[in-house]
């Protein structure tokens, strides 16, 4: 294995991809178990499940594009769009359930006015809960998060593919890098976050530093792996 200029570019791409995943998680409205009971704002599952779900969809989309072209831009774009579609579909169908089955009004407990629509929030937050459903700002934030996650996943997948030329190996290795960054980011937000308007969002520099160190160590070995046979 010789470390030429191209290899360094690949390492940098993997690091940027890992950082995008780590920061992207902060945008996704993760509500965890309380949200599943409509007692907190966000999607009712954990960070890792959401990040893995959107990231894997992004990887599949990127992989499909990679099977027809080697140009990096359409690959990154289809990864990002794939992840956004997955996340938006989850939030929309989840929203239907909150609205029509649970019967909860969408409200954020972290801000008094929705930063995007300007609607007042506190009157709609049921007593004893920290908001319900997925308000507009959370939906937009989640879409941005999925964009970053999918872009990051594709950005990890592309250099791996270019070095080992084995789609399944690259995909599984990318999932490994993806999960490490998603879990570090979810530890940083302590499980739940509403989106970029949440006070917890200000913690992102910690995740940035953590993901930088972790992805650097992973990227250095990632480019040495061969496709086998």
């Amino acid at each position: 294995m010789n470390f030429d200029a191209l290899t360094i570019v690949y390492i940098l791409e993997i690091i940027v991809g890992g950082l995008l995943v780590g920061i992207g998680v902060h945008f996704v409205p993760v509500g965890g178990a309380p949200a599943a009971m409509a007692q907190a704002t966000g999607i009712g599952t954990g960070t890792v499940q959401l990040a893995a779900g959107s990231g894997l969809t992004g990887l599949l989309a990127a992989g499909l594009m990679m099977s027809v072209t080697d140009n990096i831009w359409p690959i990154l774009a289809s990864g990002a769009v794939g992840a956004m579609i997955m996340m938006d579909a989850t939030m929309m169908t989840g929203g239907w359930i909150y609205a029509y089955a649970v019967g909860a009004p969408f409200a954020s407990a972290k801000v008094n006015y929705d930063p995007i629509t300007g609607y007042s929030q506190p009157p709609y937050v049921a007593p004893g809960t920290v908001g319900q459903g997925i308000p507009t700002v959370c939906f937009v934030s989640g879409t941005i998060g999925a964009f970053m996650g999918g872009l990051g996943g594709a950005m990890i997948y592309y250099p791996l593919m270019m070095t080992n030329h084995n789609p399944s190996l690259s995909a599984l290795f990318a999932i490994g890098i993806f999960l490490v960054n998603a879990v570090l980011a979810s530890w940083n937000i302590q499980g739940t976050i509403e989106g970029f308007h949440d006070p917890k969002f200000k913690r992102w520099p910690k995740a940035f530093r953590s993901c930088l160190v972790a992805t650097l160590i992973l990227a250095l070995v990632a480019v040495t792996i061969t496709g086998g046979a």
């Binding site: 290795f173 999932i175 490994g176 890098i177 993806f178 999960l179 998603a182 879990v183 070995v221 990632a222």
Partner: peptide, 9 residues
């Protein structure tokens, strides 16, 4: 998932 992510790498 973190354990398996690190393990697979």
């Amino acid at each position: 998932m973190l354990a398996l992510g690190m393990g697979i790498v």
